[in-house]
């Protein structure tokens, strides 16, 4: 069984995971939009609750789209389709998120999309979040989801760096290449990534509410 890395990034306070670095120059702005990093390599967070919440509202639309939510289900069976129905074959998450017994994700989900309609979409590391870190999206309010993503105990122990990097994960980018007949997330990947980084670097504020 694989174990999820439980490394905690040492310089991060547990709850907020924010480092504030003064914005020294405008030169880094272009790359900053897509990386969240200043040219110096450091993450620059400029607290702006209004801007951050507005960005998260965009992020939320994507995360709750079937391409993301279907693998972040409330239960242990992934979802399928634009109506988020339970996966027809009822595969289970399993301890490490890669399925159980004869129903492991990669038994059907190949390294790349299988051509044709209603065929398994593919990715070399197709899996659900593991059982000890379920990272549920289904049913979460914007407030809950934002809080959850920023909580290392519930986000897979991800640091700010890792959260930003996660936007480039092939499982995330795969949402925009979902295979024939599947709807895309409601905005371009570029727009999503920008919103994601904007949300994080403006302070990762959770929208108000429950």
């Amino acid at each position: 069984m694989k174990h999820h890395p439980k490394t905690k990034t040492h310089f991060l306070p547990k709850r907020t995971a924010i480092i504030i670095v003064a914005l020294l120059a405008a030169v880094g702005l272009m790359s900053f939009e897509l990386t969240g990093k200043h040219d110096s390599g450091k993450i620059i967070v400029v607290k702006d609750s209004v801007g951050s919440v507005a960005a998260f509202r965009q992020v939320y639309k994507v995360l709750m789209s079937p391409r993301c939510m279907n693998c972040h289900p409330a239960g242990d069976i992934p979802l399928q389709g634009d109506d988020n129905h339970l996966h027809t074959m009822s595969p289970r998450r399993g301890p490490d998120g890669t399925g159980m017994y004869a129903m492991k994700c990669s038994n059907c989900h190949q390294p790349a999309n299988t051509p044709g309609l209603h065929t398994p979409p593919g990715n070399p590391k197709w899996h659900l979040p593991p059982a000890d870190m379920k990272m549920v999206f289904q049913g979460r309010t914007p407030h809950e989801l934002a809080k959850q993503i920023m909580d290392p105990d519930r986000n897979g122990h991800k640091s700010m760096d890792q959260l930003i990097a996660h936007a480039s994960d092939t499982l995330v980018t795969g949402a925009w290449h979902p295979g024939a007949g599947r709807t895309l997330p409601p905005m371009s990947y570029k727009a999503f990534k920008k919103a994601w980084i904007t949300w994080l670097t403006k302070g990762a504020y959770a929208p108000p509410g429950k």
């Binding site: 990669s106 190949q110 398994p120």
Partner: peptide, 26 residues
């Protein structure tokens, strides 16, 4: 032909893959 029914299951390195969607190259 689309990994729905399991009639085509074989073991690939011990795992129960659906051979109808597993390319021969894999």
């Amino acid at each position: 032909g689309v990994a729905q029914c399991g009639a085509c299951v074989v073991h690939l390195n011990g795992e129960a893959v659906r051979s109808c969607v597993t390319k021969v190259s894999r």
